[in-house]
C-alpha cells in the first residue's frame, strides 16, 4: 500500500481532515498543569474525607457532590484533554451529557416506581 497518498488528503475538503491538537504554547506547560491538577485533586480528596465526618445534613451531601463533580471535571478537562480540544462542548455533550441524560430517565423512573420491601 502506498501510504504517501495520505499526504494529499488534507486538501480534500472542509473539516474532514481538520487537526484537533493542543496548540504549541500549551503543550510546553503541560507538565506544570498536570502537577497543579494533581495537587488540586489531592486537596479536594482530603477535604472530602474530612467533610464526610461532619454531622449528617443536606449541606454536607451538596458539598460532597460538588467536590466530586469538580474533581471529575478536572480529570476530564485536563487529563483527558477535553479543555484543549477544538470543540470541547461537542465532546462534553456527546460523551457525557447525552448519555447521562438518557440514564437519568431510567434513574428517575426506578426511584419514582420503587416499592421496596420494608427492612430492605
Amino acid at each position: 500500500m502506498d501510504n504517501s497518498i495520505h499526504s494529499g488528503l488534507s486538501d480534500l475538503g472542509g473539516n474532514y481532515m481538520s487537526k484537533i491538537e493542543i496548540n504549541e504554547d500549551t503543550e510546553h506547560n503541560m507538565f506544570g498543569i498536570y502537577k497543579n491538577t494533581f495537587l488540586a485533586l489531592t486537596i479536594m480528596t482530603i477535604v472530602e474525607v474530612a467533610a464526610s465526618y461532619l454531622p449528617d445534613g443536606a449541606y454536607v451531601t451538596v458539598i460532597l457532590l460538588l467536590l466530586a463533580v469538580a474533581k471529575a471535571a478536572l480529570v476530564g478537562a485536563v487529563f483527558m484533554h477535553i479543555k484543549y480540544d477544538k470543540t470541547p462542548w461537542l465532546l462534553t455533550l456527546s460523551v457525557f451529557v447525552v448519555p447521562l441524560a438518557a440514564g437519568s430517565i431510567l434513574i428517575f423512573n426506578v426511584w419514582k416506581d420503587w416499592r421496596g420491601v420494608a427492612g430492605a
Binding site: 456527546s94 460523551v95 457525557f96 448519555p99 447521562l100 438518557a102 440514564g103 431510567l106 434513574i107
Partner: peptide, 8 residues
C-alpha cells in the same frame, strides 16, 4: 459514551 451510560 457507552461506558458513561453503563455506569450511569
Amino acid at each position: 459514551a457507552s461506558e458513561v451510560i453503563f455506569f450511569t
